[in-house]
Design a protein around this nucleic acid. Structure first.
Lengths: 160, 160
DNA sequence: ACATAATCATTACAACTCAGAACGATTGTC
DNA sequence: GACAATCGTTCTGAGTTGTAATGATTATGT
């Protein structure tokens, strides 16, 4: 009976913040495992999605959004380019910057990536009904918005 | 109107799995910032909680639970011991292993840590009412359980 | 009982990752 | 037309990470 004295809400290890950290880490690791099938890491998948959403941006902008320094972005983009998934084009207006685009091969891989993402979503939320699933997403969106997080790519990726 | 063609549920970047990863990373980083006030990192806070919950365990067990190799656990425990927060005692039954315990000073810091954790919880869930908060925790618990996650410490910590 | 294998904590070490400084090319500013 | 700023890139140093080797102790097998 000594551990039963809780004057307030849930303790730290059972609170929502801890559960979010725990589940977020779990979901990210599982996703990384899944897309390893396509020889992709989470940051690489993020870049493909970003290029599909808004093509032709400069490397610096993309690096900023991914939360990685420009120096690290270079070999990062090199590999994707070497695999023929993305393409660097000279910007005629500003010959310093390279505009990045998705190749056809990259678009094809992105399609596979989306399927993997949907399977991942189903797997993570297997414990919930369809209604509960919608409810959870709605709540998480509100929390994310109130916390000032931008919808889309987040910089908490892990390199592996 | 061109971006409105969604044959199925929420896409990858707006799904629950992605939101969990995004929010989890955010919550973990915010928590790390908060406990930096107490000169603690998330793994250090995790160890203090583990020692309060079950004292006298061996270093290897604790290292396993924290997801860190034993070689890295040694300097990790050294610092906490040097600050007088934990204590290594020789196990009389097995003189190879060291049993770890929380000191009084460590217990005191843990109390402060709990307060920080509660403030953190309130902050993260500021967008939700009390009812919604309970609802969210219940859902997350179910998801975590179905995913086979053990309540308590998770190995997705960040060293900083 | 005695040799051998296994376990714990620790140390030593090598590989890898990462961010910031420095650099040439190009562009904007005044 | 000089000077500062920006982009992509390379280089380098610090920091981190896991694996292998070590010494002490304990378990196992015969």
């Amino acid at each position: 009976m000594s551990t039963d004295r809780r004057p307030e809400g849930p303790p730290a290890q059972g609170g929502a913040a801890f559960l979010l950290a725990q589940l977020g880490s779990h979901a990210a690791r599982l996703f990384a495992d899944r897309i390893a099938t396509l020889d992709l890491t989470p940051p690489q998948a993020g870049l493909l999605r970003m290029l599909a959403a808004s093509p032709g941006r400069s490397q610096r902008e993309l690096a900023d959004d991914l939360g990685m320094p420009p120096s690290r972005f270079v070999p990062f983009a090199d590999e994707l380019e070497g695999r023929g998934l993305i393409e660097r084009r000279k910007n005629p207006n500003d010959r310093r910057s390279h505009a990045l685009y998705l190749t056809e091969k990259g678009s094809g891989l992105l399609a596979e990536l989306r399927e993997v993402g949907m399977a991942h979503e189903r797997d993570i939320c297997a414990a919930l009904s369809a209604d509960e699933h919608r409810e959870l997403v709605a709540m998480l969106r509100r929390v994310a918005e109130q916390q000032g997080l931008t919808l889309g790519v987040h910089p908490g990726y892990r390199s592996a």
